[in-house]
C-alpha cells in the first residue's frame, strides 16, 4: 500500500473491494467524481451495477433486430425467387403462390432466428471489443482475482481527472482493500 514509486504514470490503478456491496457503493462514488475511463470487474454480472456506474441500456438489441430482419428477407428472397421465378417446382399439385404461403413460414422463421443468433454473437464481440487477447490489465496479479472471487475496480490513467497521488488517495477513501498500480507492456 505504501510503495512510493510514483515516477512513471501507471496504466491504471487496480483496487480490490471486500464484496459486491462495497464495490457497488464505490462505483457510485467514482461515477459521481466524474471519471470516464474506468470499470468494475466482477466474477458475475452484479445487478444494478449499470445504474451505479451511470450506464444506460445495452444497444446490442438494435444490432440483433437488424440481423433478424436480414434473415427474414434472405429467406423470403431465397424461397420466392427460386420457387416462383427461377425454377418453379410444382410437386403434389402445390404451386407457389399466395394460397400456399404458409408452407414457406417454417424456413422464414428458422432463418430469422439463425441470422439473429449470429448477430448476437458477432454483435456482442464487436460491442465489447473482443477478441483482444492481450491487455495491460493482465499484467496484474490482483486483477486476475476477478474471475474467482475478487471485486475489482479499475481506474485508467487516461482520465482527465487522474493523478497518481490523488486517485490513489481517493480509492483508499472509498474503501479499497488493496491497490495495485499496473504498468503498460514495455514496447
Amino acid at each position: 500500500m505504501s510503495d512510493t514509486k510514483t515516477s512513471p504514470i501507471p496504466f491504471a490503478f487496480v483496487a480490490e473491494f471486500e464484496n459486491a456491496t462495497e464495490l457497488y457503493h464505490a462505483a457510485e462514488h467514482v461515477r459521481d467524481e466524474g471519471f470516464k475511463r474506468w470499470d468494475v470487474h466482477t466474477p458475475y454480472p452484479v445487478h444494478g451495477m449499470d445504474h451505479a456506474m451511470g450506464l444506460g441500456k445495452s444497444w446490442l438489441s438494435a444490432l440483433v433486430l437488424a440481423g433478424g430482419t436480414t434473415g427474414f428477407l434472405t429467406a423470403l428472397f431465397l424461397q420466392f425467387f427460386t420457387q416462383i421465378s427461377l425454377y418453379p417446382t410444382i410437386v403434389q399439385g402445390k404451386p407457389a403462390n399466395l394460397s400456399t404461403i404458409p408452407a414457406f413460414f417454417p424456413v422464414l422463421f428458422e432463418l430469422t432466428i439463425l441470422f439473429s443468433a449470429f448477430s448476437v454473437l458477432f454483435g456482442l464481440l464487436i460491442v465489447i471489443m473482443l477478441p483482444r487477447w492481450n491487455h495491460p490489465l493482465f499484467n496484474s496479479e490482483l486483477f486476475k482475482k476477478f474471475s474467482d472471487d475478487g471485486f475489482i475496480l479499475v481506474i485508467e490513467s487516461r482520465n482527465r481527472k487522474f493523478d497518481v497521488e490523488g486517485t490513489r488517495a481517493f480509492l483508499e477513501k472509498i474503501g479499497a482493500k488493496r491497490i495495485e498500480a499496473v504498468e503498460e507492456d514495455p514496447v
Binding site: 462505483a27 470499470d39 491487455h135
Partner: peptide, 14 residues
C-alpha cells in the same frame, strides 16, 4: 477471447 469481466462487457453480455 480475452474476457475481462468488466461491467462494460457484462452489460452487453447479459
Amino acid at each position: 477471447l480475452g474476457w475481462r469481466g468488466g461491467n462494460r462487457q457484462w452489460r452487453h453480455y447479459e
